[in-house]
Design a protein around this nucleic acid. Structure first.
Lengths: 141, 141
DNA sequence: GTACCTGCAAACTGTTTGCAGCAGG
DNA sequence: CCTGCTGCAAACAGTTTGCAGGTAC
């Protein structure tokens, strides 16, 4: 039986092939790092982690590969306030983020009620939501 | 009787003084441009408009002044996806944005129900919302 | 005078790209 | 081989900053 990480890695390398690029040593290192990271690292952090596996991975390749993976929909890029973009493996089912302003922690949440209200508001204006962004910048109460 | 624009301009120049900077010719031009713009211009656009009033306004001064005005809370900076930051005069009462992906139009909306749900979700995690960001990237249905 | 202001150009950050050489089917 | 890959370094966009000179009390 395959582990979750192995499945995600397989899905990701397939996404690379689908995206029309080769699965190289460097890209395999990045895929490994992505599937094993439960947090929301930025490109520089991913580069650091990938280099621990394969010294020859460059930041340029990290960015190039992330672009393909995002286009194929297997990872998501989040641009939070005044900060480099952060990445995470795309899970089925959308979620939003709470950002702890003090610790920098990122917490995921989902509210179907909010999603529904958003759709309703957009519809009232004659719009259809393509995607949205909801971030709560918070402090411990 | 004063017009809304005059009131806003007065509030803004006062904010500059409160922010500890002088109200110069260049800053007056920017204030005028800000109060008269009903849209959400970015810094380059504000620079262009301010130069139409006073040729000597530089982009650096636009940025420096916007920083002060934002710190004083009389304007708001919004960083939408893959785009330079856009600015608007802060109105009492928060609102969120719908972005028309085709036309680039920005529409404001407010939903007290959504705000309440957000507070509720944050509270469940032991958090207090300092500020939040909600953007709906949409297409005409 | 003496602050603080200005525009300019250079610095800076995060990201993308052109290029010469390397490598895998 | 031949295509696409690589790292490097330069380019890029948006924004900030150091500096030499200008301006308002």
């Amino acid at each position: 039986m395959k582990t979750r990480v192995q499945n995600e890695a397989a899905r990701m390398t397939q996404a690379l092939r689908d995206g029309g690029v080769r699965v190289t040593r460097q890209r395999e290192a990045l895929v490994k790092v992505l599937t094993e990271s439960g947090d929301h690292p930025d490109a520089a952090e991913l580069h650091r982690r990938a280099q621990a596996i394969d010294r020859t991975v460059s930041l340029a390749t990290v960015y190039r590969t992330l672009t393909v993976l995002e286009r194929e929909g297997v990872i998501q890029r989040h641009s939070f306030e005044n900060a480099p973009a952060r990445f995470e493996v795309a899970e089925p089912g959308h979620h939003d983020h709470i950002l702890d302003l003090d610790s920098g922690a990122i917490i995921e949440f989902h509210s179907e009620k909010i999603e529904e209200l958003q759709r309703q508001i957009a519809a009232e204006m004659g719009y259809e939501i393509v995607h949205h962004r909801l971030e709560l910048y918070c402090r411990k109460a």
